[in-house]
């Protein structure tokens, strides 16, 4: 299987990339690691007319401590993120993505801009309430996690915008857990749950729970969060809150998992992720 024909540009600056992308029109696509786009193109489920590679644009890669958090260049590979232990749950989730070869190519910017609800990093980004920096013909802007994921494979990043970096708060004081349920370790998540918990003397000061592959986009499990926030943290209160993890979700079923089963998994994994986040 091979992609349909397309034109290719490998600009050497960000400005050039943005102008090439906007001149390319609606069918132009950015190419980062290519591990979401190229498989779709090979199966001819996507057929862009122009690919604008970010491979030669300098300054888009690397992890920097900034503003009480981490600024991660959009072209930073999953493998590099996985090795950066200071990134906590982000590093852990990155280490669970597919396999080493994919982690060596796939990028955080590509993953979040693609917005696949079955992806791991979009969920972590949503839970961590990160921010994406995107640059387009009209300059740079920030997109908050809550604004990022619009619908199935659709994000707030404009067709002529380039994601340049992803900001992840340091989450000091938060415990974390990311539970990914797969049939095989190289698979996409059947369901995944990211939990972040800040506790104060046994009381839940803040909690964020986000779900992978439970709908068209990554989702926050608001009911669980509300049930736990301000409560004392115990296996019982966690279990009770986790029971509401699938509330309001409408997960897509497939050959391996009915929606009911996925909802069940969301509850089980939420409990486990919360337990991990609270040191349980």
């Amino acid at each position: 299987m091979i992609p349909a024909n397309f034109d290719y540009a490998a600009p050497e600056s960000l400005d050039e990339a943005i102008s090439t992308l906007s001149q390319g029109g609606d069918d132009a696509k950015l190419l980062a690691g290519g591990h979401s786009l190229l498989p779709l193109m090979k199966l001819r489920l996507a057929a862009p007319s122009l690919l604008v590679s970010l491979g030669k644009v300098p300054g888009l890669s690397g992890i920097e401590r900034s503003n009480g958090g981490f600024s991660i260049g959009a072209m930073t590979r999953h493998a590099e993120i996985a090795d950066a232990e200071e990134l906590g749950v982000t590093a852990h989730a990155a280490s669970l993505i597919a396999d080493q070869q994919v982690r060596n190519r796939g990028t955080i910017g590509g993953s979040i801009a693609h917005g696949d609800s079955a992806g791991d990093l979009p969920t972590v980004f949503l839970a961590a309430e990160g921010t994406v920096t995107a640059q387009g013909p009209n300059g740079e802007r920030q997109i908050q996690a809550t604004e990022m994921f619009k619908s199935f494979l659709t994000t707030a990043v404009g067709p002529d915008e380039v994601v340049t970096s992803v900001y992840m708060p340091a989450l000091d004081g938060y415990g974390w857990g990311y539970e990914k349920f797969v049939r095989r370790s190289e698979d996409w998540a059947m369901v995944g749950v990211c939990a972040l918990v800040k506790s104060n003397g046994g009381t839940c000061e803040d909690v964020r729970v986000a779900l992978t592959h439970m709908g068209a986009t990554p989702l926050r499990a608001s009911a669980t969060e509300e049930a736990l926030r301000g409560q004392s943290l115990s296996p019982e209160s966690i279990a009770q809150a986790a029971e509401q993890a699938a509330e309001g979700t409408n997960p897509p079923g497939d050959v391996n998992a009915t929606p009911d089963y996925k909802k069940h998994l969301a509850r089980v994994l939420t409990k486990r992720a919360l337990m991990a986040a609270t040191g349980g």
Partner: peptide, 22 residues
């Protein structure tokens, strides 16, 4: 679909699936 890894080569020292790299 980048599952089997038969096409794995090293690119700048890192393993990649060469069926999913242009």
């Amino acid at each position: 679909t980048s599952n089997c890894g038969a096409c794995t080569v090293l690119m700048d020292g890192e393993s990649v699936k060469s069926c999913t790299v242009l």
